[in-house]
Amino acid sequence: MTSHVDTETLALSAEGLLDEAEECSVQGHLAGCEQCTEQLAALADVSRLLGEAAAPELPPDVAARIEEAVRAEAEQRETPSSADADPAPPPPRDDSVVPFPRRPSRWLPFLVGAAAAVFVVGGAGAVLYSMLGPGNHTGRAGSEVSEQERPDAALSYQPVLLESETSYTEDELDSQAAEVLGTVPATDYPGQSEGDPDEPREAPESDTPEVPADVATCARELGGTDEEPLPALIDIATFQPSGAESAEDAWVMYYGSDPAGAFEVVVVSPSCATGDPGDSVLAESRVSGS
């Protein structure tokens, strides 16, 4: 006699996802096994229980808070004083909501290896997300990572996002950029052997913090070199042009595919997301990796 059908197979069968042969053998077993038939009924009850689990309604104070936040955002938005003075409102663009298109690159294995881990760089107060090598994963269930299935909506290609708290200046951009690159542990770099672009199709590269949508837009609009049109690292920091009195918020994009090779560093202002990306570039440089 065949052994019992495991719960997952039963669940897949209930969704009609098994192939003909498997389905046949499951049905054959079910016909004579009360225990598995009962298990199948239990699975249907899981759906029912989920549907019955009530959750709180939207609290009025949360609704009010969101309205207030949106109002503040509206005030902040640079509404042109009058519509006719506005040269051209940003036209609806034909691109996705999803920050980055899924795009295999040689960095992917690096990002995959970095998934689900968090690393806090000490002294500099820099928080470096998602940069640990193998064996250093946080207490997340290994099975979760190994599921290799994630909703793409939340998970497209993610560059490494840093908040290094570096106050970049124009004069020292090169050395500062090199230093930031140096905080990326070398062990986390891809094995250099190959970055099989097909393999990590559903790889769990998503545990890096989500790149804010405006940063993502900007990165994509900017483009990069032909080979690596998206930055491998993005540092959310500040930048002070030479001669300027103070630093301003800036996003520092690192383009490159080889951790030991050269990186294009492009410093942009957040206006990049709303205006012409080309105009928002504050500085550019080229530095070597670690």
């Binding site: 495991d6 719960t7 997952e8 039963l10 669940a11 897949l12 209930a14 969704e15 009609g16 996802l17 298990q39 009924a41 239990a42 699975l43 009850d45 899981v46 759906s47 229980l49 989920l50 999803v98 599921e147 299935e149 909703p151 793409d152 909506a153 939340a154």
Partner: peptide
């Protein structure tokens, strides 16, 4: 919404239900 294929939604739901079953089975009242 999730930008995946319908079959993917089904299989993820199926696996999720299988995984939830042991913790919810005591709530069943057939």
């Amino acid at each position: 919404i999730l930008e995946v294929a319908s079959g993917t939604v089904k299989s993820r739901c199926a696996r999720g239900r299988a995984r939830l079953l042991p913790s919810l089975t005591h709530l069943r009242n057939p």
